[in-house]
Every structure is written in structure tokens, then in C-alpha cells.
Computed example of a mutant assay.
Amino acid sequence: MKSAFLHGIVHTAGDDMRLALQADPDIFALWQALTPIGRNEFICWVEDAKQPKTRARRIERTCEELLEGKKRPCCWAGCIHRTDKKPSAWQQAVLIDGKRN
């Protein structure tokens, strides 16, 4: 029986991301072993892509980074959608306030 796909604490992975992660049993095992916050960070990073090509690249990079042993996306400031913690000063200034301009 196939394991249920685990999502993040705020975000749910899209079908394209889910299928890519499940395509390789090693990558899928690494995904399932991540913490809910770790999975959430990867999903948020993918969901933040503005163009389909960027989204596809980020999904591919997620698979690569998992195989490299990464637990969070490289060079990602972090999910600003979480309600369980206050955004850092950097997130507030750059990601949140910057989008209002």
C-alpha cells in the first residue's frame, strides 16, 4: 500500500509537485521524512513562483536538494503565511512590506 502524501503546516502541494516527488521512491522517502515545517517551506517556495517554467524548475530543484540532504530550500527566506510565528524583521521589511509598494 502506498503511503499517504504528507503536506506542510500551511500549504498543500500541487499535483505536479506531488507527482514529481512520488516518481522516485528515494526522493519520496526523503520528502516523507521531512518535518511538516520543512515540507511547508519547499511547498511555499514552489507556490511562490510566478511563471510555470519557474515552478517546474523549483519542483526539479526540490528533488535535487532532497537528494543532497537539504531540509529546507536553498536561498529561501521562509514562508510568510505561517500564523504560528511572527515574520522575522527581514521577512517583514522585504517580503511583506515590499509587496505593498
Rank of each mutant, 00 (worst) to 15 (best):
E65D: 12
K2L: 11
Q22Y: 02
A77K: 06
G98L: 07
C44I: 01
I80R: 06
D48N: 14
T83H: 09
K86W: 13
G14A: 13
P25Q: 10
H81E: 11
E47Q: 13
M1Q: 07
E68F: 12
R100W: 11
L6T: 04
A49I: 04
I80S: 12
D26G: 02
W45C: 05
N40F: 01
D15W: 01
H7C: 01
G69S: 10
K53P: 03
L34V: 09
H11G: 00
T62M: 10
M17R: 00
K85M: 10
G8D: 04
Q51S: 13
A77Y: 10
L6C: 07
T83K: 12
T12E: 06
T62H: 07
K50E: 15
A13T: 00
C63L: 05
A93Y: 06
D84T: 14
A13C: 03
D48H: 13
A56N: 10
C74D: 08
T62W: 03
S3Q: 14
L19Q: 14
P25M: 09
K85F: 08
I37C: 10
D97L: 09
A33N: 14
A13N: 00
E68I: 06
P73L: 08
F28N: 11
R57M: 14
G38N: 07
A93I: 04
K2G: 04
V94Y: 10
D16N: 12
V94W: 07
L6F: 04
T35N: 03
I9H: 05
L21F: 03
K86M: 14
A20C: 05
R39W: 01
C63M: 11
S88Q: 08
D15N: 06
F5W: 06
C74F: 13
K2I: 11
R18F: 01
R39Q: 03
Q22C: 08
A77W: 03
R61E: 12
G69C: 08
M1E: 05
H81L: 07
G69D: 06
